[in-house]
């Protein structure tokens, strides 16, 4: 009997070696260890043995049974691993095919630039004010200290709608409205971005429509040095920490003193290059101390308070920062152009 057990074991092991799949293994398991299999048959045959023989035989059969069970379990693991490996191999994809880079829309570069400027000034406690583009002569010129027949009206050719109304030529119109709205209540600390219009023929550097962002601070003891510090802060944030600011005397009817503001060239760091035409400086904006007449017209006592104002051309800064060579790109809106401006810097 013992030999028979041993033969059975040898035979089962031999067959186990030929098993290649989970299915074959299952079949083999049923064949040997199933209810109708030879192991079970041997166990059934134990009743024909003498009482003395039974324990040893039973033990021997059980040993073989558990031995085979263990071997089959080991075989199952191996087969499963093999099959998994095969499956993974078969499921391999071509990772070089393009991914689904979903289209993200961008802010228009002028919005991007404007927002960058807005956020700098919001951080310094400025509010963002707006106003109508179809504006009264009163707010665009009169209140900005540019009365009828003032020579400065020659400086900005205006789109008039009728004798009273026009398309605003500068966002100073928002300032004069805000000064009036403040009704003498100070401080005023605001920026006013917006579209402005001048009777210019469109070319690479001129546009009849463009974007300005002016700033206005009115309080006690505001100085020209404060203006310089504020603009220097802006320049550093927008064009880089090493930026410097230079004032040159100029003239605007609504400021006194008035200055042209140059920023050190961000391309060459002030050494001189094509962008700054070799000067190391780029003329970027106009600014000055608010003219006392402008304050007085808004009911603010110019002997007690002072203010500064500045105006930035948003296109100008964007063109400098991104190296755009034609202002018309901003308004023809070629989507390939627009897609370039895909992040804040």
């Amino acid at each position: 009997m013992v030999n028979k057990i041993q033969e059975l074991k040898e035979k089962a092991l031999k067959e186990l070696e030929t098993v290649n799949s989970a299915k074959e293994l299952q079949d083999l398991k049923v064949l040997y260890l199933g209810k109708k299999g030879p192991i079970q048959e041997l166990m059934m045959g134990m009743k024909d043995l003498s009482k003395e023989e039974r324990p040893a035989f039973g033990q021997a059969v059980n040993e073989v049974k558990s031995f085979l069970e263990q071997k089959m379990e080991e075989a199952r693991k191996v087969i499963e691993e093999k099959e998994l490996a095969l499956r993974l191999e078969n499921e391999k994809i071509d990772i070089t095919l393009p991914g689904f880079k979903m289209e993200q829309g961008n802010l228009h570069p002028l919005t991007l630039m404007q927002r960058e400027l807005e956020d700098i000034f919001i951080g310094m406690g400025y509010t963002v004010e707006e106003g109508p583009e179809v504006e009264y002569d009163l707010y665009n010129f009169e209140r900005a200290n540019i009365p009828q027949d003032h020579p400065a009206r020659d400086m900005q050719d205006t789109f008039y709608i009728n004798a009273e109304k026009l398309l605003r030529t500068h966002t100073t119109a928002i300032q004069t409205r805000q000064l009036e709205a403040a009704n003498g209540k100070l401080p005023i600390k605001m920026i006013c971005p917006g579209k402005v219009y001048r009777r210019d023929d469109d070319d690479a550097t001129h546009s009849h429509q463009f974007t300005q962002m002016e700033g206005l601070v009115v309080a006690e003891n505001i100085t020209l040095a404060d203006l310089k510090g504020t603009l220097e802060f802006m320049a550093k944030k927008v064009l880089g920490e090493s930026s410097k600011v230079r004032f040159r005397p100029s003239f605007f009817p609504f400021t006194e003193p008035s200055v042209e503001v140059d920023i050190s060239c961000h391309m060459c760091g002030g050494k001189g290059c094509n962008v700054c035409k070799g000067t190391g400086w780029i003329e970027v904006l106009g600014a000055g101390m608010v003219h006392p007449d402008v304050l007085e017209m808004a009911g603010i006592d110019s002997s007690k308070c002072s203010g500064f104002a500045f105006g930035v051309g948003v296109e100008r800064i964007a063109m400098l920062k991104y190296g755009v060579d034609d202002i018309r790109h901003f308004y023809t809106d070629d989507v390939r152009f627009l897609k370039t401006f895909n992040r804040f810097e």
């Binding site: 006690e220 310089k228 004032f247």
Partner: peptide, 25 residues
């Protein structure tokens, strides 16, 4: 004031930030 700084030179102007009541941006 403009005549004075124009002839003395803007180079000498310092950079400061306004000292004024807090405003909410």
């Amino acid at each position: 004031s403009e005549e004075v700084i124009r002839l003395i030179g803007y180079d000498s102007l310092e950079s400061t930030l306004p000292l004024m009541p807090m405003t909410l941006g």
